[in-house]
């Protein structure tokens, strides 16, 4: 008997979600496991979003602040630099100014920044609050209103505050980034709740929470894998959404990425952080992420090269 290559029996498909003000960027649409291009379609290669902070970062490692020293503190210029110089497919704007445990600045002002950034670039813009239930409800509702017509991706929308942020996302027609704590069952539950609220399934992406390299990324890997198995082989309609991995900030906040050159055996601090970020991004893409959020321009170059090996 001739050898037959084993093949997965797929019964489901990932939804295609259109992003950005001109809806010209699509994510999802896969009919097979990640990069299993020999078994099915992946019409939309994974996208790279690059981080922008609404304030000049205070605690970034030298290696990663250096490329942005001329634009830090000017989110619009920063976003443009990422798109025009570094080839970002998307922008991920973090409204760190609103952190209630830090500057706790005004929601309206942050929303205005989000609007300016979303207007300034042609690529889709992700706007993230700080994860504080109370403050995000206020900030992200204002962002939704200010960015009407710009179809931004708003998050993190978590179970506790999903109504307060989900409702304005429906009203002002934005995409929701549904965030749960590294758990496949909770990811499904939040999508059900968002559906009950009236958020269209075509406007949801899943943020399963990304653990840093050495700080739990393997759990995220397994959960993304599990989500894709349910979506593609168990016809789980609640999990057939594109996935975003918010990983740059997780990588660059860990001790090993922030350390300088003081300890020789840790090697060159710039290379070290970039490689940690690149390895994380590849892992997330292999597990099934449709969007990876990155920080360093050199990582972006590496990942673009990597993706080229699979697509075109």
């Amino acid at each position: 008997m001739a050898f037959e290559t084993p093949k997965i029996n797929y019964s489901g498909k990932i939804r295609e979600v259109k992003l950005g003000k001109s809806k010209n960027v699509s994510v999802g649409g896969e009919s097979a496991y990640p990069l299993y291009l020999f078994e099915g379609e992946n019409p939309n290669p994974p996208k790279i979003a690059m981080e922008v902070f609404d304030l000049a970062p205070e605690e970034w490692a030298d290696a990663v602040i250096a490329p942005f020293k001329d634009v830090a503190g000017d989110p619009v210029a920063w976003a443009k630099l990422n798109v025009e110089q570094h080839g970002a497919d998307m922008i991920a704007l973090y409204l760190v100014s609103t952190d209630p445990n830090d500057k706790n600045m005004d929601a309206a002002q942050a929303a205005e920044t989000a609007k300016k950034v979303a207007q300034a670039v042609d690529v889709p813009v992700i706007v993230y609050g700080t994860g504080s239930e109370e403050k995000d409800a206020e900030v992200l509702a204002k962002v939704a209103e200010a960015c009407e017509g710009l179809n931004v991706i708003i998050g993190p929308v978590q179970e506790a505050g999903h109504k307060k942020i989900g409702a304005p996302c429906i009203g002002y027609k934005h995409t929701v980034s549904a965030n749960t704590p590294i758990d496949v069952n909770l990811a499904k539950q939040l999508n059900i709740l968002l559906g009950n609220l009236g958020v269209n399934a075509d406007n949801i992406i899943i943020d399963p929470t990304t653990g840093g390299l050495g700080y739990g990324i393997e759990y995220t890997y397994s959960v993304i894998e599990r989500i894709r198995m349910a979506a593609l082989t168990q016809q789980d309609a609640q999990l057939q959404q594109p996935i975003i991995s918010v990983l740059g900030r997780e990588v660059w906040k860990c001790k090993e990425a922030k350390m300088g050159a003081e300890d020789e055996k840790y090697g060159d601090p710039t290379k070290r952080g970039i490689l940690m970020e690149a390895v994380s991004a590849v892992s997330m893409i292999i597990s099934g992420a449709d969007i990876v959020v990155l920080r360093h321009p050199e990582t972006v170059k590496l990942i673009k090269q990597y993706l080229k090996a699979f697509f075109n």
């Binding site: 496949v184 069952n185 499904k188 539950q189 059900i192 709740l193 009950n196 168990q234 609640q238």
Partner: peptide, 12 residues
């Protein structure tokens, strides 16, 4: 194990 658990399994 034929469907994935969520708290709202009866509503689906």
């Amino acid at each position: 194990g034929q469907s994935l658990y969520s708290d709202s399994w009866l509503e689906l």
